[in-house]
Design a binder for these strands. Structure first.
Lengths: 134, 134
DNA sequence: GCTTGACCTAGAGTTAACTATAGGGATTAT
DNA sequence: ATAATCCCTATAGTTAACTCTAGGTCAAGC
């Protein structure tokens, strides 16, 4: 089973433009073409794109992802680099999760702040709080 | 106690450029100036900047944050809007946390994949796995 | 009184990651 | 066999959020 670029775009929830851009940037050099030059995506290409999306969502820039793709095509000699890269990504995501949890705390705090103010009809209810009002 | 722009930058871990940019974009209209035009930051200004950083980290663009700042200066008549905004931000962060947790799962999966491959000395160890290798 | 260092504004430049346009080829339905 | 629809490339344009530069002001120390 193979897929056209627009089918892949729909499936992965990104645009045809973006896919072509990824190709141009060297993220998917393994995608084959028909004799007339049309891209033909295999299942394994879609799996690779999912990994690319995953790496992107860790905040990794496209140029670095390209480096990883190159390592993949170089075979077992780059296994250590690739492992190290994923450990690094893991640490990055852990840090992001920590930050986001702190953000969530503050947001929750503000939700309570405004709920209380709304119930009282005025923000003045918080005027004497040590907690930063705004 | 008041602070100069460079002290605030250091404290909040951002640049002087960024602070002036925020000011230009209307995020901190309440920051006062000396007669000669130099910005003088109060504690409450720093607190406000922390909220701004928090909103930014939820993915909120600066123009929308500006809208919130305007609501703040309009008083109690905008309490409902501000409450709704924070509820919306809370939902956004919840979604981000969910995504990031999924990302973490895949990353962990890949860490194991490469650990196993590294121990075996070759990626071929995964060739017959249903799980997408790459 | 002059140099130094921090501050100011206006505006140009940067970067990433698309997004869109123009111009053209191939395949499918009628 | 022709119109519609999808595909292609190359290249220009967009956007957000800074980042930097040029040119100038101002207060403090020597």
């Amino acid at each position: 089973m193979t897929y056209s670029i627009s089918e892949v775009a729909k499936e992965l929830n990104l645009t045809v433009y973006a896919l072509r851009y990824y190709d141009k940037e060297g993220l998917i050099p393994f995608v084959e073409r028909t004799p007339s030059g049309i891209r033909v995506f295999k299942e394994s290409d879609i799996e690779a794109l999912k990994i690319i999306q995953c790496l992107k969502s860790t905040g990794m820039p496209i140029k670095e992802i390209k480096g990883f793709i190159e390592w993949c095509s170089e075979g077992d000699s780059t296994l250590q680099q690739r492992y190290d890269m994923f450990l690094e990504r893991k640490a990055a995501v852990e840090a992001q999760l920590e930050d986001l949890n702190k953000t969530m705390e503050l947001i929750n705090h503000k939700c309570n702040y405004y709920k209380t103010a709304l119930d009282a009809g005025t923000e003045d209810i918080h005027k004497n709080n040590k907690i930063g009002n705004f």
